[in-house]
Nucleic acid binder design. Structure first.
Lengths: 237, 237
DNA sequence: CCCCGAGTTTACAGGGATTTACAACACCCG
DNA sequence: CGGGTGTTGTAAATCCCTGTAAACTCGGGG
């Protein structure tokens, strides 16, 4: 057994993955996701920058060669609005781009084709040195409801609410977005770890049980509300 | 080290260059020297480490393949005595060494043959970002749990916890990501040194033993929690 | 050659998670 | 209004993941 146990922090860091090769992206996304990363993908520069602005990922992975405006351009623009680390993907042997990228402030590059495993290792290497523990609060309170993520615990008026694993995941998401509608899609992906499919009723079933474990609102309605065709919402008082 | 600004050569940073290929070393040394680096060279591991100890360079460049003890070994020993950044030189396509090296904490990789210009650019890129790198702490504490990575030791309230090798690796990962979910994938790769496969139960078994070696949380739950389909999480109190 | 310890694999139990089924709704039309 | 269609609530059945003890494997001593 090799004792490879150097410190690798950051499970669940978010990654924005930009490449026009759909197949490759899918492969990488799946692997990174299974490795604990939170992955968003884009296939060209335009949407990449929009997603970047919207999601503020912890790190971006950008292909140098893309239709529309190039990876170098994406890099430049990301750089112009902050210090989010960027890893560039280059064609093997394309020394010019690599050097240019590095000089423009890319934090690393990986030659394609690369193994998902290598990409993951490098992302962690970069995050290890750049990520200053992002500000995840110890607790979030919504009225009398308190969420302690690091303890995997949720309490109502100081009393622990007894939740199963999936129930906790889902309620956590609702609390983190309290008052807003959370799509089934998101609930499924973040909470159950798989894409949502049309006839999948798991979420409804779980939310039904959670509903029974939370006290009703003053007006007698349950605290968790289905929003037809849109998702679910945690009501605040 | 002086200068922090982007793209500006780090004047007079010192580099230790280790490679058995005398010709290549000469070429690189001259180029790096003309680029403002202060270069020392060694042709095998033994003298490399001696020079490293004597000169405390700002950065080391080490060939993976060398007679005597290998570059990986040199990397390991440099790592064991501090956090000086290390850039590894590998044969093109030697993915295994690259990944192994990254996991052991190499800061970067360059495939041989490389242009002196590229090497120089990468050295500067590393130096630029390591200027602000936080040094790895001697110990990490999560409540009463203390991790001493360099000593391969974990203690609970001052008492050593008796752990086997694999158990230590896994618990170390959980502590370094305390409060976050760590995927089985990561645990397997970093902790056991092999990719995770679907029906592999080793991790579950190891974590089960660890669980029994740690005291319970105040609320009676075990400190290590499975998160369905995602991985495991060390709960904080 | 046997024993020992660590790691892995196997086996099985129990409890969640998911699926199924059906009733109750909401919404969209004419 | 009143089907028709699609969605949600929930109990019940089924499935599958994790916890854990125990068997197995493999190297190193003695």
């Amino acid at each position: 057994m090799p004792e490879i146990a150097n410190n690798i922090p950051t499970a669940s860091a978010s990654v924005l993955l930009v490449d026009d090769d759909v197949e490759l992206v899918t492969l990488l996304r799946d692997y990174l996701a299974s490795d604990g990363f939170n992955v968003t993908v884009a296939h060209e520069g335009e949407s990449a920058l929009r997603l970047f602005a919207a999601q503020a990922p912890d790190i971006a992975v950008v292909d140098v060669m893309m239709p529309g405006f190039s990876g170098i351009e994406v890099l430049r623009r990301i750089r112009s609005r902050g210090s989010t680390p960027v890893l560039m993907l280059t064609a093997r042997g394309d020394d010019e781009s690599r050097i240019l990228g590095l000089e423009l402030g890319a934090d690393d590059y990986v030659a394609k084709p690369c193994t998902p495993r290598e990409l993951s290792a490098r992302l962690r290497a970069i995050l290890r040195r750049t990520l200053v523990r992002s500000t995840t609060p110890d607790s979030v309170c919504i009225g009398d409801l308190a969420l302690y993520s690091a303890q995997r615990r949720i309490a109502w008026a100081g009393q622990d609410v007894q939740l199963t694993n999936a129930e906790f995941n889902l309620l956590e998401l609702l609390i983190q977005n309290a008052g807003q509608v959370v799509s089934k899609n998101l609930l499924s992906e973040q909470g159950l770890g798989r894409p949502f499919q049309r006839y999948d009723r798991s979420i409804d079933v779980h939310l039904s049980s959670i509903r029974h474990k939370l006290p009703l609102l003053p007006d007698g309605r349950p605290r968790i509300q289905a929003v037809l065709r849109k998702g679910y919402q945690l009501l605040t008082d």
